[in-house]
Write a protein that binds this DNA or RNA. Sequence first.
RNA 1: GCUGCCGUAGCUCAGUCGGUAGAGCACAUCCUUGGUAAGGAUGAGGUCGUGGGUUCGAUUCCCACCAGCAGCUCCA
Length: 659
Amino acid sequence: MLKVVLPDGAVKEFENRVRPLDVAEGISPGLARATVAAMFSPGTEGSWASITPTLLGTEDFLPESGEVHLRLLTKKDPESLDILRHSAAHIMARAVMRLFPGVELAFGPTVENGFYYDFSMEHKLCEEDFPKIEEEIKRLLKEDEKFERIEVPRNKAIEMLQGMNQMLKVEHVREGLGEHETVSFYRQGEFLDLCRGPHIPKPKFIGAIKLMSVAGAYWKGDAANQQLQRLYGTAFFDKKELEQYLFQLEEAKKRDHRVLGKKHELFSIEQKVGQGLILWLPKGAIVRKQLENFIYGDLVKRGYQCVNTPVIGNIELYKTSGHYPYYAESQFPPIKMQDGDEFLLRPMNCPHHVMVYMNKPRSYRDLPLRLAEFGCVHRFEQSGELNGMTRVRGFTQDDAHIFCTPEQVEEEFRGCIDMTLMVLKTLGFNDFQVRLSFRDWVSDKYVGNPENWKKAQAALEKVCKEMDLPSLEIVEGEAAFYGPKADFIVRDCLGRKWQLGTVQLDYNLPSPERFNLEYIGPDNKPHSPVMIHRAPLGSFERFCGILIEHFAAAFPLWLAPEQVRVLTVSEKYDAYAKKVEQKFLDAGFRASSDLRGEKIGAKIRDGRNDLLPYLAVVGAKEEENNSVALRGRKDGELGEIPLDEVIRRLEEEVRTKKL
RNA sequence: GCUGCCGUAGCUCAGUCGGUAGAGCACAUCCUUGGUAAGGAUGAGGUCGUGGGUUCGAUUCCCACCAGCAGCUCCA
């Protein structure tokens, strides 16, 4: 008697011998043949382990007794694709081992859009090796040898790995799998690797494997360990899917803010100025200015007070805050004066704002005190970390620090989250992710009393859940040493995650060990305030970088560097064009006119390439009617419209920040 | 910082098996006065990332450095 657990959880029993195909067709006729039906048993070691907890081919017979869990290996199922890719990783590793002697295997898992395998080997892999490796992969796919699972006791596994000279894996079994009695291997032909599985039954299900890139990676992710060679690849059920993926990748690269920033003259980075230092070109500066105005307007409504503080400070300030010398490596070195004083280019604004708080005695009646500043900071990031506008060495945070009583924390936190959400929503970011970073209770790196931490984390979690944040994730052990935080994370055109907005609670800086902040409570006694660091955008640099990719540089009207351009049909209408341009300027728009001796077609082409939200064509008709022939970036020709009406329409579009 | 790749005009790129370089776009001047995605002509523009080495001669070969890209590590 065989018990089969179907993908939906239902259980079927079979007396006679069946194949996955028979079972699959029973639950979803036709599907099985079109895709692939297969079996494996997740997490049912023991009874199932004695059989073969691996995927079975459609034509294999299932065991006659016991319990099996059925799953369909289908194109649409992300887990299926994962299994496929993990098998592809084995095949790639096998190809590499065939081509280069003395390869030691490390790990070879799947990643978001593919897989990788880490190797320790003499030969330095480079892209020139790819064709050779891919050829070998093709051969292996053709040979179509079965994946087999082998389970052995731990000691035996170590012996086997030593025999194969796979010392990294020996170390892993010894140190990483100490609690396992038995470990599993997967064999495919001569290739045998320690692996948890599962794998596809046979390589024939893989339609396409492509090597993507090679890079260095540290053994077990620790920079203190030896560096391995990591070969990235991807695999799909069929070739078409691969081609589509590669096409999408190419399309995505066209949105890259470094490409568009150059093309549309938004920003530049000059070697002569320095790595990671952004020059905002006139057009980029306009986008930034609009964001500043937008944020500033909201700050006022939310009861913030703006301050201005210098970009350097006496090193004593940072010794008190604890930032120096603890973070000396990621700071620009101190500036030493002749009289012995030392100054630090500030890596964050908080100490300065703390000093503003300390400017005079504070009462509970002053709280919450919300101090805001677009504060310019500098951090000496490792050269390999720098990335266009998204990782830089000098940047301006849309920063603020809220000083409040412990009772006010929840409400203030809610306000910060609300502001960040408003900003993201206004700009059309819908697929961001919110990460709540909490402490773990084992580590001793955290400051502040555990009671406060517990209360703070509970408050944060409560607010986030009440506000129904999208893809809320709670990560323990990711908190800053001084308090828990909530980060807003958005992906760039290549799918990399970037932290934008952040809200962080801080029990450290106000503490007696640091600045010893106080306010006089209603009980006429001093109390310690809580500090909240928050920046809805994060920094203007990173945010604009992501924003450029988000809009592919085609900014909505309110942000567009150039909002409307007047195009003349011929030189005869230059005077009228200038008049129209002036009308737009008077109405507060960023307008210009194209009076070149080009044909109207060419001017329109240029205007479109420059991503102008609106083009206003003028000729005889328009001059006579005091109108323009309007053309929208999205809608194309909008026909002849009276000038006043156009201005009204655009004003409305700016006012509502229409996307 | 680490591994690999890479660096030619403002931009995108070609090229030189070692004899100091070329296209398109952009730019300038002139002709054209054109109604919704490129009218034409002429011209200007480069110490071929920087510094060494090999060589009669290096943009080309070698080394180092600097910068950029992908990944790793890091991000208070």
